[in-house]
Amino acid sequence: MNTLTLRRRDPFAEFDALVRRTFEQRATGFNPAAEVSRDGDDAVVRLELPGVDVERDVTVELDRGHLVVRGERRDERAEERDGRTLREVRYGSFHRAFALPEHVTDEAVTAEYDAGVLTVRVAGAYVARSTRRIEVTTQSK
């Protein structure tokens, strides 16, 4: 005999989960869109950072085999309409990390910002290291 079990939905649990997700998103700031592509032997990372003051609020670093881009976005706008002030404030920190091959050094990394896009080029990231064959020895019995 088949039995059917009905579960009651808990509207408070659903609301609690919704509020938790909303605050978790706010706490983490924003996550800029990123694109990683290959240009010959170079890796090119592009991050969308419109409205960010890259000279003041963005750092690009090599940290233990990772390319790390972090910063903060601050944007505040105010507009007068019908004798009232409409103010919009957007802010949040971000942190993106990309694994790099062991042979990449800081001299291989360049970064430039243009029209809201940060482009980081890692020269030689795809250069293959030469393969070295290891001889296998056997022990005589």
Rank of each mutant, 00 (worst) to 15 (best):
L18W: 11
E76Y: 12
G124I: 10
A13P: 02
A27I: 06
H66T: 07
V117Q: 01
T138Q: 13
R87V: 14
E61H: 03
R70F: 04
A97F: 09
S140N: 05
P32H: 03
A43V: 03
V104K: 05
R132Q: 09
D75M: 13
H95W: 14
H66Y: 10
A33N: 06
V120I: 15
R9K: 07
M1P: 08
A78R: 12
V120N: 01
T22V: 07
R21S: 13
R26W: 11
E79W: 09
R96E: 05
V69K: 07
G51Y: 09
R129F: 00
D114E: 15
T137D: 10
R96V: 08
R87H: 05
V127H: 10
T131C: 03
P32D: 05
F94L: 07
D114W: 02
G29D: 08
V117N: 08
E24A: 15
D114N: 08
P101L: 07
N2D: 11
R64C: 03
A17K: 07
V45D: 06
D82M: 00
V36G: 03
Y126N: 08
G83P: 06
E35V: 09
K141S: 10
G40C: 00
R7T: 09
D53E: 10
A78F: 12
R81I: 13
D114H: 10
R73C: 05
V60H: 03
L49I: 05
E24Q: 05
A43R: 04
A97P: 05
D10H: 04
D42M: 06
M1I: 14
V109C: 11
A97E: 14
T131H: 14
V45P: 02
G116P: 04
T119C: 00
D16C: 14
L62P: 02
A115I: 00
F23V: 15
Y113W: 09
P50R: 08
N31E: 15
V69G: 02
Q139P: 00
A99H: 10
V44W: 02
G51F: 08
I134F: 13
A99R: 15
R90A: 10
A99D: 15
E76P: 01
G116C: 11
E76N: 08
A33D: 13
V19A: 12
R56S: 15
R56P: 00
G124T: 07
G83S: 02
T59P: 01
E14Q: 14
G71M: 01
G71P: 03
S140I: 14
E135M: 04
G51R: 09
T131F: 15
R9G: 07
V122A: 01
V60M: 04
G71R: 05
R20S: 13
L6C: 04
L100P: 09
Q139Y: 03
V136Q: 09
G51K: 10
D42H: 02
R26D: 13
A108W: 01
S130A: 12
T105V: 15
V45L: 12
L4K: 02
Y113R: 00
A34L: 12
T3D: 12
A108L: 01
F98W: 13
T119W: 00
V54Q: 08
E14I: 12
G83D: 04
S130C: 01
L47P: 04
L62E: 05
A108K: 10
T3S: 00
R129C: 00
